[in-house]
């Protein structure tokens, strides 16, 4: 006679685990529902609210928002030459910050990836990240102090008969370039580290001097990394409103137009309409760079 012993009845947790094992879709749903909800409500929700608000208006007397569809905000943004100038100026600042960061970041990233000993590389990466641990406002105000009349910059330049930029657009570019530099260095560092050293040797071996090697080998090979970095520096500059307030003097950029309309002017719908500008610019930019393969670098 054979005794059939059935295995002990599986516990609840075991049954759940077995069910999840059989149903990969259920597993995925459980895993992603919370973050997806957060993304939809908090992130896209805010964006949708902004877009919706942009089509409303403010009652001039009461200051209350009138929830009636109107294109007036966009007509003002695109029609008024003042805002066109501000938009172009903001684009110019963002582009200039990106160029300055690229020019500064390439040598630093190159040193980190190709010259420094491999053992010291993690420490250099940490050193690059350290400024990001300090509060944004503190750093911006530190620059305000440095750029002041009797500040460090003027003091350092005085022996050469020069003076600093003072407050204004040049100061804004300098400070933004300082703030976003790590976001350019890190993708370039990653890209350069992936590039085999032998390609540099090969270019030199075939007669290429430093400039030629950079133009023909390093730049094309790290171009996706450069674009990845520029997405950060460009978009962060385009949306910034604090730095220009602190060191920009009287200059107006998109960011502080948005800020002023939310605060002083109490015109949230108009602020929302202005704020769609950088969003649109970035969408166009990202669509353009998608072709370069740079999005795989992010």
């Amino acid at each position: 006679m054979t005794v059939v012993t059935s295995p002990p009845a599986p516990g609840f947790r075991r049954r759940v685990a077995a069910l999840l094992h059989r149903r990969p879709r259920l597993r995925l749903a459980l895993l992603l529902s919370a973050p997806l909800a957060w993304l939809l409500i908090a992130y896209l929700g805010a964006l949708a609210a902004m877009l919706l608000t942009a089509f409303w208006s403010t009652d001039t007397f009461t200051g209350n928002i009138v929830k009636q569809f109107t294109l007036q905000n966009f007509k003002d943004v695109f029609g008024d030459p003042v805002y066109r100038t501000i938009a172009l100026r903001s684009l110019g600042v963002a582009a200039l910050v990106t160029v300055v960061d690229a020019v500064l970041a390439y040598p630093m990233a190159f040193f980190m990836a190709k010259v420094a000993r491999p053992r010291s590389r993690p420490f250099l990466v940490i050193a690059i990240l350290t400024p990001l641990w300090a509060a944004y406002l503190v750093k911006a105000y530190a620059w305000r102090v440095m750029l002041a009349d009797g500040g460090l910059v003027n003091w350092a330049l005085k022996p050469f008969g020069l003076s600093g930029p003072g407050y204004g657009l040049p100061a804004t570019v300098v400070v933004l370039a300082y703030l976003w530099l790590p976001y350019m260095i890190l993708p370039l560092y990653a890209g350069l580290e992936r590039m085999p050293d032998s390609l540099l040797d090969a270019s030199g071996d075939l007669g290429g001097r430093t400039g030629r090697t950079f133009r023909s080998v390093v730049l094309p090979m790290t171009f996706p990394s450069l674009v990845a970095g520029s997405i950060f520096t460009f978009s962060l500059s385009l949306g910034d409103y604090i730095t220009v307030k602190i060191v920009g003097g009287k200059s107006q950029l998109i960011g502080n137009v948005v800020y002023d309309n939310i605060g002083a002017a109490n015109n949230l719908p108009f602020a929302a309409a202005v704020a769609t500008l950088p969003v649109m610019v970035m969408l166009i930019y990202i669509a353009a760079v998608r072709r370069t393969g740079a999005l795989e670098e992010l």
Binding site: P196, G204, L206, G208, R209
Partner: peptide
């Protein structure tokens, strides 16, 4: 420097420029 020497190298990993065509690679020098 390497670019001032009349020698050329075939590398162990070949070190071909991946972003260039075969012809562009050969033309580089």
């Amino acid at each position: 420097a390497p670019f001032d020497r009349d020698v050329n190298t075939v590398f162990q990993d070949y070190a071909l420029f991946p972003h260039m065509s075969v012809l562009q690679n050969v033309e580089y020098g």
